[in-house]
């Protein structure tokens, strides 16, 4: 039982990383109806900007704020410059554009800041929480910030005119345009917000996985899995899905028979297979709305 608890806590700590990323994934999915493959690299690049600002002697919170604003602007610029011209292209073409963006950001970060691993400070410190080794303060802080962001997003989308306009633009662009919503700018805003959330996620994740150009690849894939598990239409579900992926991944080695036989080598495989099995029964994710189309 002690062991299970320990693994669950470790899973929650990992899960917080995935949940952060899953939230950013769902945000941009809501805004543009595509999955942004470059999301992780955008977050990585933002984190490098924060690292550079700290290295130049800025206090942590100044770097934090400047990075979020810079990421927001950069997200809007990327949408306006790169993705606006091809917004009518087939889905797979925009997917390749995401892959291109991924490649550009990854390679330039490596070129500017090289591929050596860098440490990134945590605002919460990394002392054990409650005096036992189950979770440290940074991990607890990360969970807190993720849930906080989720709450703010909920208030934004449910409580403000702008949030309503963004939801309308994503759900039904034609009708939204007819009632006077500037759909193009709503999409750009969605990109900006997703980039900013990604930046927060990156800066929270970096103290755990360390900062280097490839740090986000694995995280993004798990975040993606979490988002799909929770349902791509539900930010809350995505966060829960992210936590679930972390916990499942850590509990698999403890399962009788399967765990000892396959152990650590295949735990990722088992986690993914489990997710696929869940999707068999809930094809739109655990909390996703299934899309009903009129014939």
């Amino acid at each position: 039982m002690e062991l299970v608890l320990q693994q669950v806590m470790a899973g929650l700590a990992n899960g917080a990383i995935y949940a952060c990323m899953a939230l950013a994934v769902v945000m941009i999915y809501q805004a543009i109806d595509h999955l942004n493959f470059a999301q992780g690299e955008m977050a990585m690049f933002s984190t490098f900007i924060a690292w550079q600002l700290i290295a130049w002697g800025q206090p942590y919170w100044v770097a934090f704020g400047v990075t979020i604003i810079a990421s927001f602007v950069a997200g809007i610029l990327i949408e306006r410059v790169l993705f606006r011209p091809i917004h009518n292209a087939p889905v797979l073409s925009s997917l390749v554009a995401f892959i291109a963006l991924f490649s550009i950001l990854n390679s330039s970060a490596g070129y500017i800041w090289d591929f050596t691993i860098k440490t990134f400070p945590s605002p919460f410190g990394q002392k054990p929480l409650f005096g036992n080794g189950l979770m440290d303060t940074h991990e607890a802080g990360m969970i807190g910030v993720t849930l906080g962001m989720l709450g703010l997003l909920y208030l934004f989308f449910r409580g403000t005119r702008l949030g309503l306009a963004m939801r309308a633009a994503a759900a039904n662009p034609e009708s939204a345009r007819l009632v006077g919503i500037r759909v193009g700018w709503m999409t750009a805003l969605g990109w900006g917000m997703a980039a900013a959330i990604g930046a927060v996620a990156g800066m929270l994740i970096a103290p755990v996985v360390f900062l280097e150009p490839n740090m986000m690849l694995g995280v993004l894939l798990y975040g993606f899995a979490g988002a799909v598990l929770g349902g791509l239409t539900s930010p809350g579900g995505a966060v829960l899905g992210g936590f679930a992926v972390g916990v499942i991944e850590n509990l698999v080695p403890l399962v009788p028979y399967i765990g000892p036989a396959f152990g650590r080598e295949l735990k990722l495989t088992f986690a993914l297979v489990l997710i696929v099995v869940v999707l068999m029964f809930r094809p739109s994710g655990l909390f996703g709305r299934s899309v009903v189309s009129r014939v």
Binding site: V96, A97, A100, L101, S103, I104, S107, Y111
Partner: peptide, 15 residues
């Protein structure tokens, strides 16, 4: 050093 970035730019131009 910038191979990935150049690849990405070529990809974008092609798209």
């Amino acid at each position: 050093g910038l191979a990935g970035a150049i690849y990405g730019v070529i990809l974008l131009i092609v798209i």
